[in-house]
Design a protein around this nucleic acid. Sequence first.
DNA 1: TTTTTATCTTTACATCGTCAAGATATGATT
DNA 2: AATCATATCTTGACGATGTAAAGATAAAAA
Lengths: 235, 235
Amino acid sequence: MARNPRQNKGNRPRARGAAKPAAAKQAVRRIRADKESPYHHGALRDALLQAAEKLVERDGLPGLTLRAVAREAGVSHAAPTHHFGDLTGLVSELAAIGYRQFNKAMMAANVSGTVQEKGLASAKAYIAYAQANPGMYGLMFRTERLDMSRPSLHEAANAAFAGLARGVGASRHEHIEASALSLEQAGAIARAWSLLHGFAMLLLDGRMSHMLRRLPKGTTMDQLFEAMLKSPPPR
Amino acid sequence: MARNPRQNKGNRPRARGAAKPAAAKQAVRRIRADKESPYHHGALRDALLQAAEKLVERDGLPGLTLRAVAREAGVSHAAPTHHFGDLTGLVSELAAIGYRQFNKAMMAANVSGTVQEKGLASAKAYIAYAQANPGMYGLMFRTERLDMSRPSLHEAANAAFAGLARGVGASRHEHIEASALSLEQAGAIARAWSLLHGFAMLLLDGRMSHMLRRLPKGTTMDQLFEAMLKSPPPR
DNA sequence: TTTTTATCTTTACATCGTCAAGATATGATT
DNA sequence: AATCATATCTTGACGATGTAAAGATAAAAA
Protein backbone atom coordinates (compact mmCIF):
# COMPACT_ATOMS: atom_id res chain seq x y z
CA MET A 1 0.00 0.00 0.00
CA ALA A 2 1.25 3.42 -0.87
CA ARG A 3 -0.78 5.48 1.52
CA ASN A 4 1.60 5.74 4.39
CA PRO A 5 2.77 9.34 4.62
CA ARG A 6 6.08 8.52 6.15
CA GLN A 7 9.56 7.78 4.97
CA ASN A 8 10.55 8.16 1.41
CA LYS A 9 14.28 8.42 1.18
CA GLY A 10 14.40 7.39 -2.39
CA ASN A 11 15.20 3.79 -1.77
CA ARG A 12 14.50 2.69 -5.28
CA PRO A 13 16.42 -0.48 -5.90
CA ARG A 14 19.27 -0.30 -8.30
CA ALA A 15 18.49 -1.13 -11.90
CA ARG A 16 18.50 -4.78 -12.72
CA GLY A 17 21.91 -6.18 -13.46
CA ALA A 18 23.76 -3.16 -12.19
CA ALA A 19 27.09 -4.03 -10.64
CA LYS A 20 27.23 -4.39 -6.89
CA PRO A 21 28.26 -1.16 -5.26
CA ALA A 22 31.95 -1.34 -4.47
CA ALA A 23 31.99 0.61 -1.22
CA ALA A 24 28.68 -0.61 0.10
CA LYS A 25 30.11 -3.36 2.24
CA GLN A 26 32.52 -1.06 4.00
CA ALA A 27 29.89 1.65 4.36
CA VAL A 28 27.53 -0.74 6.06
CA ARG A 29 30.23 -1.82 8.44
CA ARG A 30 31.08 1.75 9.31
CA ILE A 31 27.51 2.81 9.86
CA ARG A 32 26.58 -0.15 11.98
CA ALA A 33 29.85 0.10 13.89
CA ASP A 34 28.54 3.42 15.23
CA LYS A 35 25.90 1.46 17.07
CA GLU A 36 26.34 -1.25 19.61
CA SER A 37 26.68 -4.40 17.56
CA PRO A 38 27.45 -4.38 13.87
CA TYR A 39 25.66 -7.50 12.74
CA HIS A 40 24.20 -9.49 15.54
CA HIS A 41 21.76 -7.37 17.41
CA GLY A 42 21.58 -9.62 20.42
CA ALA A 43 18.00 -8.97 21.34
CA LEU A 44 16.47 -8.18 18.00
CA ARG A 45 13.35 -10.17 18.58
CA ASP A 46 12.32 -8.13 21.59
CA ALA A 47 13.40 -4.91 19.92
CA LEU A 48 11.19 -5.71 16.94
CA LEU A 49 8.21 -6.43 19.16
CA GLN A 50 8.75 -3.19 21.02
CA ALA A 51 8.98 -1.31 17.74
CA ALA A 52 5.84 -3.05 16.54
CA GLU A 53 3.88 -2.05 19.62
CA LYS A 54 5.02 1.53 19.25
CA LEU A 55 4.00 1.57 15.60
CA VAL A 56 0.58 0.01 16.06
CA GLU A 57 -0.26 2.52 18.77
CA ARG A 58 1.08 5.44 16.76
CA ASP A 59 -0.19 4.56 13.27
CA GLY A 60 -2.81 1.91 13.87
CA LEU A 61 -3.00 -1.48 12.27
CA PRO A 62 -2.39 -0.29 8.70
CA GLY A 63 0.88 1.25 9.88
CA LEU A 64 2.09 -2.02 11.31
CA THR A 65 4.15 -3.47 8.46
CA LEU A 66 7.18 -5.70 8.52
CA ARG A 67 9.25 -3.09 6.79
CA ALA A 68 8.18 -0.28 9.07
CA VAL A 69 9.03 -2.40 12.09
CA ALA A 70 12.44 -3.15 10.62
CA ARG A 71 13.06 0.55 9.96
CA GLU A 72 12.00 1.45 13.48
CA ALA A 73 14.44 -1.10 14.88
CA GLY A 74 17.19 0.02 12.49
CA VAL A 75 17.68 -3.28 10.71
CA SER A 76 17.18 -4.46 7.17
CA HIS A 77 13.66 -4.97 5.93
CA ALA A 78 13.93 -8.73 5.83
CA ALA A 79 15.31 -9.17 9.33
CA PRO A 80 11.91 -9.67 11.00
CA THR A 81 11.15 -12.61 8.74
CA HIS A 82 13.84 -14.66 10.39
CA HIS A 83 12.29 -14.21 13.81
CA PHE A 84 8.61 -14.38 12.99
CA GLY A 85 8.32 -16.13 9.67
CA ASP A 86 5.85 -13.67 8.25
CA LEU A 87 3.63 -10.76 9.17
CA THR A 88 1.05 -13.04 10.73
CA GLY A 89 3.76 -14.40 12.98
CA LEU A 90 4.82 -10.99 14.21
CA VAL A 91 1.25 -9.82 14.71
CA SER A 92 0.41 -13.00 16.59
CA GLU A 93 3.37 -12.67 18.94
CA LEU A 94 2.45 -9.04 19.54
CA ALA A 95 -1.12 -10.05 20.29
CA ALA A 96 0.18 -12.55 22.82
CA ILE A 97 2.03 -9.72 24.55
CA GLY A 98 -1.20 -7.75 24.48
CA TYR A 99 -3.10 -10.53 26.21
CA ARG A 100 -0.44 -10.73 28.88
CA GLN A 101 -0.58 -6.96 29.46
CA PHE A 102 -4.34 -7.23 29.58
CA ASN A 103 -4.30 -10.08 32.06
CA LYS A 104 -1.94 -8.14 34.30
CA ALA A 105 -4.21 -5.10 34.24
CA MET A 106 -7.25 -7.19 35.06
CA MET A 107 -5.51 -8.92 37.94
CA ALA A 108 -4.45 -5.60 39.38
CA ALA A 109 -8.04 -4.34 39.33
CA ASN A 110 -9.36 -7.40 41.12
CA VAL A 111 -7.68 -7.14 44.50
CA SER A 112 -9.72 -5.34 47.12
CA GLY A 113 -13.31 -4.64 48.05
CA THR A 114 -16.56 -6.55 47.97
CA VAL A 115 -17.49 -8.89 45.17
CA GLN A 116 -19.56 -6.12 43.58
CA GLU A 117 -16.75 -3.59 43.86
CA LYS A 118 -14.28 -5.99 42.34
CA GLY A 119 -16.63 -6.67 39.47
CA LEU A 120 -17.09 -3.00 38.72
CA ALA A 121 -13.37 -2.32 39.00
CA SER A 122 -12.65 -5.18 36.61
CA ALA A 123 -15.18 -3.93 34.10
CA LYS A 124 -13.65 -0.47 34.21
CA ALA A 125 -10.18 -1.91 33.90
CA TYR A 126 -11.27 -3.81 30.80
CA ILE A 127 -12.43 -0.65 29.06
CA ALA A 128 -9.47 1.31 30.39
CA TYR A 129 -7.03 -1.13 28.82
CA ALA A 130 -8.76 -0.91 25.46
CA GLN A 131 -8.81 2.86 25.63
CA ALA A 132 -5.18 3.15 26.70
CA ASN A 133 -3.97 0.60 24.13
CA PRO A 134 -6.36 0.86 21.21
CA GLY A 135 -3.88 -0.54 18.72
CA MET A 136 -3.06 -3.56 20.83
CA TYR A 137 -6.68 -4.22 21.72
CA GLY A 138 -7.69 -4.03 18.08
CA LEU A 139 -4.90 -6.42 17.20
CA MET A 140 -5.99 -8.99 19.74
CA PHE A 141 -9.39 -9.39 18.15
CA ARG A 142 -8.51 -9.26 14.45
CA THR A 143 -8.53 -12.91 13.62
CA GLU A 144 -7.70 -12.35 9.97
CA ARG A 145 -4.13 -11.52 10.92
CA LEU A 146 -3.81 -13.86 13.89
CA ASP A 147 -2.57 -17.41 14.05
CA MET A 148 -4.26 -18.87 17.08
CA SER A 149 -2.34 -22.12 16.69
CA ARG A 150 0.80 -20.35 17.93
CA PRO A 151 1.35 -21.65 21.45
CA SER A 152 2.27 -18.32 22.99
CA LEU A 153 -0.85 -16.64 21.63
CA HIS A 154 -3.04 -19.59 22.39
CA GLU A 155 -1.90 -19.71 25.98
CA ALA A 156 -2.14 -15.99 26.62
CA ALA A 157 -5.61 -15.78 25.10
CA ASN A 158 -6.75 -18.80 27.05
CA ALA A 159 -5.45 -17.26 30.25
CA ALA A 160 -7.46 -14.13 29.49
CA PHE A 161 -10.58 -16.17 28.96
CA ALA A 162 -10.00 -18.16 32.13
CA GLY A 163 -9.55 -14.96 34.10
CA LEU A 164 -12.78 -13.56 32.74
CA ALA A 165 -14.60 -16.79 33.55
CA ARG A 166 -13.19 -16.75 37.07
CA GLY A 167 -14.35 -13.18 37.57
CA VAL A 168 -17.85 -13.95 36.37
CA GLY A 169 -17.91 -17.00 38.63
CA ALA A 170 -16.93 -14.90 41.62
CA SER A 171 -19.74 -12.46 40.96
CA ARG A 172 -22.11 -15.43 40.91
CA HIS A 173 -20.58 -16.72 44.15
CA GLU A 174 -19.50 -19.95 42.55
CA HIS A 175 -16.32 -21.50 41.27
CA ILE A 176 -16.12 -21.77 37.50
CA GLU A 177 -13.86 -24.28 35.81
CA ALA A 178 -13.27 -22.73 32.40
CA SER A 179 -12.83 -26.11 30.76
CA ALA A 180 -16.37 -27.36 31.48
CA LEU A 181 -19.24 -24.92 31.66
CA SER A 182 -22.96 -25.16 32.25
CA LEU A 183 -25.22 -23.32 29.86
CA GLU A 184 -26.09 -20.83 32.57
CA GLN A 185 -22.47 -20.13 33.35
CA ALA A 186 -21.62 -19.78 29.69
CA GLY A 187 -24.53 -17.38 29.28
CA ALA A 188 -23.23 -15.23 32.09
CA ILE A 189 -19.71 -15.24 30.68
CA ALA A 190 -20.94 -14.49 27.18
CA ARG A 191 -23.01 -11.65 28.59
CA ALA A 192 -20.11 -10.03 30.41
CA TRP A 193 -17.68 -10.53 27.58
CA SER A 194 -20.02 -9.37 24.83
CA LEU A 195 -21.00 -6.33 26.81
CA LEU A 196 -17.44 -5.30 27.53
CA HIS A 197 -16.00 -6.25 24.16
CA GLY A 198 -18.87 -4.63 22.32
CA PHE A 199 -18.57 -1.41 24.28
CA ALA A 200 -14.81 -1.37 23.78
CA MET A 201 -15.08 -1.92 20.03
CA LEU A 202 -17.81 0.65 19.57
CA LEU A 203 -15.79 3.05 21.66
CA LEU A 204 -12.63 2.54 19.61
CA ASP A 205 -14.61 2.88 16.39
CA GLY A 206 -15.95 6.23 17.53
CA ARG A 207 -19.55 5.07 17.69
CA MET A 208 -19.91 5.80 21.40
CA SER A 209 -18.75 9.38 21.15
CA HIS A 210 -21.31 9.79 18.41
CA MET A 211 -23.86 8.73 20.98
CA LEU A 212 -22.40 10.97 23.65
CA ARG A 213 -23.14 13.96 21.44
CA ARG A 214 -26.85 13.15 21.72
CA LEU A 215 -26.65 13.24 25.51
CA PRO A 216 -27.01 16.23 27.83
CA LYS A 217 -23.98 18.46 27.54
CA GLY A 218 -21.13 17.53 29.84
CA THR A 219 -22.02 13.86 30.11
CA THR A 220 -18.85 11.77 30.17
CA MET A 221 -18.03 8.40 28.67
CA ASP A 222 -17.66 6.99 32.18
CA GLN A 223 -21.19 8.04 33.01
CA LEU A 224 -22.48 6.40 29.86
CA PHE A 225 -20.58 3.22 30.68
CA GLU A 226 -21.98 3.09 34.21
CA ALA A 227 -25.48 3.82 32.94
CA MET A 228 -25.07 0.87 30.62
CA LEU A 229 -24.00 -1.43 33.46
CA LYS A 230 -26.92 -0.28 35.58
CA SER A 231 -29.43 -0.59 32.78
CA PRO A 232 -31.87 -3.46 33.43
CA PRO A 233 -32.50 -6.12 30.80
CA PRO A 234 -35.70 -5.61 28.81
CA ARG A 235 -38.60 -7.76 29.98
CA MET B 1 0.46 -7.00 -0.14
CA ALA B 2 1.53 -10.13 -1.89
CA ARG B 3 -0.26 -12.70 0.12
CA ASN B 4 -3.27 -13.33 -2.03
CA PRO B 5 -2.98 -16.83 -3.39
CA ARG B 6 -4.87 -16.12 -6.57
CA GLN B 7 -4.09 -14.84 -10.04
CA ASN B 8 -0.65 -14.65 -11.37
CA LYS B 9 -0.77 -14.46 -15.09
CA GLY B 10 2.66 -12.97 -15.38
CA ASN B 11 1.50 -9.40 -15.81
CA ARG B 12 4.86 -7.90 -15.29
CA PRO B 13 4.83 -4.45 -16.83
CA ARG B 14 6.95 -3.98 -19.89
CA ALA B 15 10.46 -2.75 -19.30
CA ARG B 16 10.84 0.97 -19.05
CA GLY B 17 10.95 2.73 -22.37
CA ALA B 18 9.84 -0.30 -24.36
CA ALA B 19 7.83 0.61 -27.42
CA LYS B 20 4.07 0.46 -27.17
CA PRO B 21 2.73 -2.83 -28.47
CA ALA B 22 1.55 -2.32 -32.01
CA ALA B 23 -1.42 -4.67 -32.08
CA ALA B 24 -2.56 -4.02 -28.52
CA LYS B 25 -5.14 -1.43 -29.42
CA GLN B 26 -6.87 -3.63 -31.95
CA ALA B 27 -6.66 -6.64 -29.68
CA VAL B 28 -8.37 -4.78 -26.90
CA ARG B 29 -11.14 -3.70 -29.23
CA ARG B 30 -11.67 -7.21 -30.46
CA ILE B 31 -11.74 -8.77 -27.04
CA ARG B 32 -14.09 -6.25 -25.56
CA ALA B 33 -16.31 -6.35 -28.63
CA ASP B 34 -17.13 -9.90 -27.64
CA LYS B 35 -18.90 -8.48 -24.61
CA GLU B 36 -21.80 -6.11 -24.50
CA SER B 37 -20.20 -2.69 -24.55
CA PRO B 38 -16.62 -2.16 -25.63
CA TYR B 39 -15.73 0.87 -23.59
CA HIS B 40 -18.58 2.32 -21.64
CA HIS B 41 -19.91 -0.27 -19.30
CA GLY B 42 -23.15 1.54 -18.55
CA ALA B 43 -23.58 0.44 -14.97
CA LEU B 44 -20.02 -0.13 -13.92
CA ARG B 45 -20.44 1.49 -10.54
CA ASP B 46 -23.05 -1.02 -9.45
CA ALA B 47 -21.17 -3.87 -11.06
CA LEU B 48 -18.06 -2.91 -9.08
CA LEU B 49 -19.98 -2.79 -5.82
CA GLN B 50 -21.51 -6.17 -6.54
CA ALA B 51 -18.08 -7.58 -7.29
CA ALA B 52 -16.75 -6.03 -4.12
CA GLU B 53 -19.45 -7.61 -1.99
CA LYS B 54 -18.79 -10.97 -3.56
CA LEU B 55 -15.07 -10.63 -2.93
CA VAL B 56 -15.32 -9.52 0.67
CA GLU B 57 -17.60 -12.42 1.49
CA ARG B 58 -15.42 -14.89 -0.36
CA ASP B 59 -11.95 -13.72 0.64
CA GLY B 60 -12.54 -11.45 3.60
CA LEU B 61 -11.35 -7.92 4.02
CA PRO B 62 -7.75 -8.56 2.93
CA GLY B 63 -9.09 -9.89 -0.39
CA LEU B 64 -11.04 -6.74 -1.04
CA THR B 65 -8.62 -4.75 -3.20
CA LEU B 66 -9.30 -2.24 -5.92
CA ARG B 67 -7.52 -4.36 -8.46
CA ALA B 68 -9.31 -7.56 -7.51
CA VAL B 69 -12.64 -5.77 -7.80
CA ALA B 70 -11.67 -4.47 -11.23
CA ARG B 71 -10.63 -7.96 -12.32
CA GLU B 72 -13.87 -9.44 -11.03
CA ALA B 73 -15.85 -6.87 -13.01
CA GLY B 74 -13.67 -7.38 -16.09
CA VAL B 75 -12.35 -3.84 -16.37
CA SER B 76 -8.94 -2.26 -16.11
CA HIS B 77 -7.30 -1.90 -12.73
CA ALA B 78 -7.78 1.85 -12.55
CA ALA B 79 -11.46 1.91 -13.49
CA PRO B 80 -12.75 1.84 -9.90
CA THR B 81 -10.80 4.97 -9.07
CA HIS B 82 -12.99 7.04 -11.33
CA HIS B 83 -16.13 5.99 -9.48
CA PHE B 84 -14.92 5.90 -5.91
CA GLY B 85 -11.82 8.05 -5.75
CA ASP B 86 -9.83 5.54 -3.75
CA LEU B 87 -10.15 2.31 -1.79
CA THR B 88 -11.66 4.10 1.18
CA GLY B 89 -14.34 5.42 -1.13
CA LEU B 90 -15.28 2.01 -2.44
CA VAL B 91 -15.23 0.43 1.00
CA SER B 92 -17.36 3.24 2.39
CA GLU B 93 -19.99 2.91 -0.34
CA LEU B 94 -20.03 -0.84 0.20
CA ALA B 95 -20.48 -0.30 3.93
CA ALA B 96 -23.43 1.98 3.17
CA ILE B 97 -25.02 -0.83 1.20
CA GLY B 98 -24.36 -3.11 4.14
CA TYR B 99 -26.16 -0.77 6.53
CA ARG B 100 -29.13 -0.64 4.19
CA GLN B 101 -29.26 -4.43 3.95
CA PHE B 102 -28.97 -4.57 7.71
CA ASN B 103 -31.76 -2.05 8.24
CA LYS B 104 -34.01 -3.97 5.91
CA ALA B 105 -33.38 -7.22 7.78
CA MET B 106 -34.07 -5.55 11.11
CA MET B 107 -37.31 -4.01 9.90
CA ALA B 108 -38.48 -7.36 8.57
CA ALA B 109 -37.88 -8.97 11.96
CA ASN B 110 -39.82 -6.30 13.82
CA VAL B 111 -43.32 -6.74 12.46
CA SER B 112 -45.49 -9.07 14.52
CA GLY B 113 -45.95 -10.24 18.08
CA THR B 114 -45.70 -8.69 21.49
CA VAL B 115 -43.08 -6.15 22.42
CA GLN B 116 -41.00 -8.89 23.99
CA GLU B 117 -41.30 -11.13 20.95
CA LYS B 118 -40.34 -8.32 18.63
CA GLY B 119 -37.33 -7.56 20.77
CA LEU B 120 -36.13 -11.16 20.71
CA ALA B 121 -36.75 -11.47 16.98
CA SER B 122 -34.77 -8.28 16.35
CA ALA B 123 -31.89 -9.48 18.48
CA LYS B 124 -31.79 -12.74 16.58
CA ALA B 125 -32.01 -10.93 13.26
CA TYR B 126 -29.03 -8.81 14.28
CA ILE B 127 -26.85 -11.82 14.88
CA ALA B 128 -28.27 -13.61 11.84
CA TYR B 129 -27.25 -10.75 9.58
CA ALA B 130 -23.72 -10.74 10.93
CA GLN B 131 -23.47 -14.48 10.55
CA ALA B 132 -24.87 -14.54 7.02
CA ASN B 133 -22.76 -11.59 5.88
CA PRO B 134 -19.58 -11.71 7.93
CA GLY B 135 -17.55 -9.76 5.39
CA MET B 136 -20.05 -6.96 5.14
CA TYR B 137 -20.60 -6.79 8.89
CA GLY B 138 -16.88 -6.62 9.50
CA LEU B 139 -16.60 -3.87 6.94
CA MET B 140 -19.27 -1.75 8.57
CA PHE B 141 -17.36 -1.50 11.82
CA ARG B 142 -13.81 -1.10 10.56
CA THR B 143 -13.38 2.62 10.96
CA GLU B 144 -9.81 2.64 9.70
CA ARG B 145 -11.05 2.04 6.17
CA LEU B 146 -14.29 4.00 6.40
CA ASP B 147 -15.01 7.62 5.56
CA MET B 148 -17.98 8.50 7.72
CA SER B 149 -18.19 11.95 6.17
CA ARG B 150 -19.57 10.37 3.00
CA PRO B 151 -23.27 11.28 2.93
CA SER B 152 -24.49 7.86 1.80
CA LEU B 153 -22.62 6.06 4.55
CA HIS B 154 -23.41 8.67 7.16
CA GLU B 155 -27.12 8.45 6.40
CA ALA B 156 -27.30 4.67 6.26
CA ALA B 157 -25.36 4.30 9.51
CA ASN B 158 -27.50 6.92 11.20
CA ALA B 159 -30.64 5.14 10.06
CA ALA B 160 -29.32 1.94 11.61
CA PHE B 161 -28.65 3.70 14.88
CA ALA B 162 -32.07 5.34 14.85
CA GLY B 163 -33.72 1.99 14.23
CA LEU B 164 -31.86 0.45 17.12
CA ALA B 165 -32.81 3.35 19.39
CA ARG B 166 -36.44 3.03 18.33
CA GLY B 167 -36.42 -0.67 19.11
CA VAL B 168 -34.92 -0.14 22.54
CA GLY B 169 -37.47 2.61 23.17
CA ALA B 170 -40.31 0.29 22.25
CA SER B 171 -39.08 -2.36 24.67
CA ARG B 172 -39.09 0.35 27.37
CA HIS B 173 -42.59 1.40 26.35
CA GLU B 174 -41.48 4.90 25.50
CA HIS B 175 -40.73 6.92 22.42
CA ILE B 176 -37.06 7.66 21.85
CA GLU B 177 -35.92 10.57 19.78
CA ALA B 178 -32.46 9.53 18.66
CA SER B 179 -31.25 13.12 18.47
CA ALA B 180 -31.70 13.87 22.18
CA LEU B 181 -31.27 11.13 24.74
CA SER B 182 -31.47 10.89 28.49
CA LEU B 183 -28.66 9.11 30.28
CA GLU B 184 -31.00 6.25 31.13
CA GLN B 185 -32.08 5.85 27.53
CA ALA B 186 -28.52 6.01 26.29
CA GLY B 187 -27.54 3.40 28.84
CA ALA B 188 -30.23 1.06 27.57
CA ILE B 189 -29.22 1.63 23.95
CA ALA B 190 -25.55 1.16 24.75
CA ARG B 191 -26.40 -2.03 26.59
CA ALA B 192 -28.36 -3.54 23.72
CA TRP B 193 -25.88 -2.45 21.09
CA SER B 194 -22.77 -3.50 22.98
CA LEU B 195 -24.30 -6.87 23.80
CA LEU B 196 -25.29 -7.59 20.20
CA HIS B 197 -22.21 -6.09 18.58
CA GLY B 198 -19.92 -7.76 21.05
CA PHE B 199 -21.52 -11.14 20.55
CA ALA B 200 -21.45 -10.72 16.78
CA MET B 201 -17.78 -9.77 16.74
CA LEU B 202 -16.74 -12.54 19.10
CA LEU B 203 -18.78 -14.94 17.01
CA LEU B 204 -17.15 -13.85 13.76
CA ASP B 205 -13.72 -14.01 15.37
CA GLY B 206 -14.35 -17.61 16.39
CA ARG B 207 -14.23 -16.89 20.10
CA MET B 208 -17.77 -18.07 20.74
CA SER B 209 -17.29 -21.44 19.12
CA HIS B 210 -14.25 -21.80 21.34
CA MET B 211 -16.62 -21.31 24.25
CA LEU B 212 -19.17 -23.69 22.79
CA ARG B 213 -16.59 -26.45 22.93
CA ARG B 214 -16.54 -26.09 26.72
CA LEU B 215 -20.29 -26.61 26.91
CA PRO B 216 -22.24 -29.87 27.13
CA LYS B 217 -22.04 -31.72 23.85
CA GLY B 218 -24.73 -30.77 21.37
CA THR B 219 -25.29 -27.28 22.72
CA THR B 220 -25.94 -24.89 19.83
CA MET B 221 -24.89 -21.29 19.28
CA ASP B 222 -28.54 -20.28 19.43
CA GLN B 223 -28.86 -21.78 22.87
CA LEU B 224 -25.79 -19.94 24.04
CA PHE B 225 -27.14 -16.69 22.61
CA GLU B 226 -30.49 -17.14 24.36
CA ALA B 227 -28.76 -18.07 27.59
CA MET B 228 -26.82 -14.84 27.33
CA LEU B 229 -29.99 -12.80 26.82
CA LYS B 230 -31.65 -14.49 29.78
CA SER B 231 -28.61 -14.12 32.02
CA PRO B 232 -29.30 -11.64 34.84
CA PRO B 233 -26.89 -8.76 35.52
CA PRO B 234 -24.53 -9.38 38.45
CA ARG B 235 -25.58 -7.71 41.67
C1' DT C 1 41.62 -23.78 14.72
C1' DT C 2 38.12 -25.31 11.75
C1' DT C 3 33.41 -26.17 10.84
C1' DT C 4 28.74 -25.52 11.55
C1' DT C 5 24.85 -22.89 12.63
C1' DA C 6 22.19 -18.81 13.60
C1' DT C 7 21.53 -14.19 12.42
C1' DC C 8 21.23 -10.44 9.37
C1' DT C 9 21.67 -8.14 4.54
C1' DT C 10 20.94 -7.82 -0.41
C1' DT C 11 18.54 -8.63 -4.29
C1' DA C 12 14.55 -9.81 -6.78
C1' DC C 13 9.70 -10.06 -7.85
C1' DA C 14 4.63 -10.09 -7.76
C1' DT C 15 1.10 -7.40 -5.82
C1' DC C 16 -1.13 -3.25 -4.25
C1' DG C 17 -2.96 1.89 -4.30
C1' DT C 18 -2.71 5.87 -6.77
C1' DC C 19 -1.54 9.36 -10.09
C1' DA C 20 -1.07 11.14 -14.90
C1' DA C 21 -1.83 10.88 -19.58
C1' DG C 22 -4.08 8.85 -23.37
C1' DA C 23 -8.16 6.73 -25.77
C1' DT C 24 -12.99 6.31 -26.54
C1' DA C 25 -17.86 6.95 -26.16
C1' DT C 26 -21.86 9.88 -24.90
C1' DG C 27 -24.20 14.08 -24.83
C1' DA C 28 -24.59 18.91 -25.91
C1' DT C 29 -24.09 22.76 -28.96
C1' DT C 30 -24.07 24.79 -33.04
C1' DA D 1 -25.39 16.51 -39.22
C1' DA D 2 -20.94 17.98 -37.70
C1' DT D 3 -18.18 19.58 -33.97
C1' DC D 4 -16.93 20.04 -29.40
C1' DA D 5 -17.02 19.06 -24.44
C1' DT D 6 -17.37 15.93 -20.92
C1' DA D 7 -17.60 11.55 -18.71
C1' DT D 8 -15.80 7.06 -18.78
C1' DC D 9 -12.33 3.72 -19.20
C1' DT D 10 -7.35 2.07 -20.39
C1' DT D 11 -2.29 2.26 -20.20
C1' DG D 12 1.70 3.15 -18.01
C1' DA D 13 4.44 4.39 -14.22
C1' DC D 14 5.95 4.79 -9.31
C1' DG D 15 6.70 3.87 -4.57
C1' DA D 16 5.17 0.77 -1.05
C1' DT D 17 4.55 -3.92 0.77
C1' DG D 18 5.29 -9.20 1.79
C1' DT D 19 8.14 -12.76 0.94
C1' DA D 20 11.50 -15.90 -1.14
C1' DA D 21 16.42 -16.90 -2.35
C1' DA D 22 21.09 -16.26 -1.94
C1' DG D 23 24.97 -14.09 0.14
C1' DA D 24 27.58 -12.21 4.24
C1' DT D 25 28.87 -12.22 8.95
C1' DA D 26 29.12 -13.41 13.73
C1' DA D 27 28.60 -16.84 17.36
C1' DA D 28 28.88 -21.49 18.81
C1' DA D 29 30.51 -26.09 18.40
C1' DA D 30 33.82 -29.42 17.23
